[in-house]
Nucleic acid binder design. Structure first.
Lengths: 213, 213
DNA sequence: GCAAGTATTCGACATAGTGTCGAGTTAAGT
DNA sequence: ACTTAACTCGACACTATGTCGAATACTTGC
């Protein structure tokens, strides 16, 4: 994902001339948002709260962000970069054996989600509410799906995995499963897989779906 | 799910005395909601719209439902009953062979979701917004999960399926997968599995996860 | 067939949140 | 010092929610 697409998060403002203040405020808004998201969903956070938390008035908030969803998006951008890096790292581990690789790949997603659960959970929800969050999330998922499908096809070519339903369809289902299960576990929604069995369970489904004829 | 739990949807009003009018209005609200949900999400439907659509004023709406989420819930209740009936039907098909049974069980979910996509998609979204929808959805999922887990354990006992991760964890993951994949496909969210390959794909994951050692 | 009670209806109000406009202040660059 | 641009906020307009109380309509017991 090129950053350009999610860049126009900030309302206007060009290169920072004034030493700090502007960026400080922006960071203060982001920090406030992250803090509040750990406690309650985005829908229950008013712009006034974000502004107050950053020590500015409500109209001033709009100087920095056009909506609270865009604040979330800025937060999400950070996290996405991290997830991407970890995943790329995992995909290089095919040499260590397929199970190792899949564990690393699924684990990358799980770990990122867990470490930033406030932001990721809120995003998974905002997805249904906000078009821009939906677009970002779709692009992230698309990346994971494409890589997963490629890995499945590679395993099929080398004869390790049997043919079956289209690799891409399988990849889509598996990746959405990961997303949904993580949301239920970390969002406190029942029924949920206990956190400590998360990775083993998801991995079992991956391996079964990919390697069983 | 005992109906009693989701019964107090209506604000008050006891047994209908006045021949029809009251129930008619209530049905009109439900019909309006279902019609609008086919076009836009619940969040974009105002109570005023629902009231106008049913030919009443906004305050009068509150006589019938305490919130628009409760209207959705009433709609969902109908659908849940249908899904439950179909699923029960499917689980009796073990005699026809495991693949047949699983196809029927997953298909029951898919078919219900597809036939009432406006209501089910809206509910899957409201789940993240509304506590009561969340509770109903959780109970429905819990039912599916329990039955799925029981079926997996039965297959394991008769030696058809190998042991592995706890059956319940597997059941949770698989059922959330179905939910999430259906929402993406019917909610027009990318990436999505094309509608006509939905059942085959989900079934492949089920069989792989359950029967692969 | 009417008095009493209950079901139903809505106008009017109170409240909360969003987004915008325009007039201000502050700081940098020249 | 003066211009320009960054930044700030008071005040307004708008939309939606939810509630209260008074009015109307139907039903039932008498």
């Amino acid at each position: 994902m090129d950053p350009a697409v999610t860049e126009p998060v900030r309302s206007r403002r060009a290169a920072r001339t004034r030493a700090v203040t502007g960026d400080d405020r922006e960071q203060a808004i982001l920090a406030t948002a992250e803090r509040l998201l750990a406690v309650k969903p985005l829908a229950e956070i008013s712009i006034d709260e974000l502004a107050k938390g950053a020590g500015i008035s409500r109209p001033t908030f709009y100087f920095y962000f056009a909506s609270k969803e865009l604040v979330l998006l800025a937060l999400l951008d950070r996290v996405v970069g991290e997830a991407r890096a970890r995943r790329d790292d995992a995909l290089d581990r095919l040499a260590e054996g397929p199970e190792r690789m899949w564990r690393a790949a699924v684990g990358a997603f799980c770990a990122t989600f867990a470490e930033h659960r406030a932001v990721t959970s809120a995003s998974a929800v905002a997805l249904h509410t906000n078009g821009e969050v939906r677009a970002v999330w779709s692009r992230v998922m698309e990346g994971f799906v494409a890589d997963t499908a490629k890995a499945i096809e590679a395993e099929r070519r080398r004869g390790a995995a049997p043919d079956g339903v289209p690799a891409r369809d399988l990849a889509i289902s598996l990746n959405w499963m990961v997303e949904r299960v993580l949301v239920s576990t970390y969002g406190g929604q029942e029924p949920a897989v206990p956190e400590d069995r998360l990775l083993d369970t998801l991995l079992a489904v991956f391996l079964g779906a990919i390697y069983r004829s």
